[in-house]
């Protein structure tokens, strides 16, 4: 019994871990109140997918995909494609994070907070003020 679990973990455990990581990320985005924390969770989630792809490229007894003398069969190298793909994914995630951070800066600038409930409250206040201003304006026009 123990053996089967350990072999299972050895073979598929990494998938389980990435899945946990992914779920953590998603859960974090949904539950965190702080926008910065949400951004961090987003990064965790993206990392999980990168792991997933890299695991796919893995094979036992393979070496890094750089031509080495004496090793000529494809079986001797791990699959380079997922790595290539993940380079792109990392770039994308970098871009997303950059956009996210700059948006956060602006949010902080405009509202003075990056806590979600504070922010919503402030938006509500703002729109109430706006409505009141409109009403006064209309009244002024009427009179």
């Amino acid at each position: 019994m123990m053996i089967t679990i350990s072999t299972f973990l050895a073979e598929k455990g990494i998938y389980l871990l990435t899945f946990i990581l992914l779920s953590l990320g998603v859960a974090g985005i949904v539950t965190c109140n702080n926008y910065m924390k949400k951004l961090i969770c987003m990064n965790i989630m993206q990392v999980a997918v990168i792991f997933l792809f890299l695991c796919l490229g893995q094979k036992s007894k393979g070496t890094i995909p750089v031509a080495v003398e004496g090793l000529e069969k494809a079986a001797d190298y791990i699959n380079p494609l997922p790595h290539g793909l993940m380079l792109t994914a990392i770039v994308v995630s970098l871009g997303t994070t950059a956009v996210g951070l700059s948006l956060l800066l602006r949010i902080r600038e405009k509202y003075g907070t990056i806590e979600e409930d504070d922010l919503l409250m402030r938006q509500e206040l703002l729109s109430m003020e706006e409505r009141q201003r409109r009403k006064q304006e209309l009244q002024r026009i009427d009179t």
Binding site: Q46, V49, V92, V99, L103, I107, Y111, Q123
Partner: peptide, 21 residues
């Protein structure tokens, strides 16, 4: 718009990640 964009970014990234999975 900034707040909406930020929230869209978070949700949109989840979507993109799911797509990648």
């Amino acid at each position: 718009g900034i707040v909406s964009a930020y929230r869209y970014m978070l949700v949109g990234t989840i979507a993109a990640t799911f797509y990648l999975v």
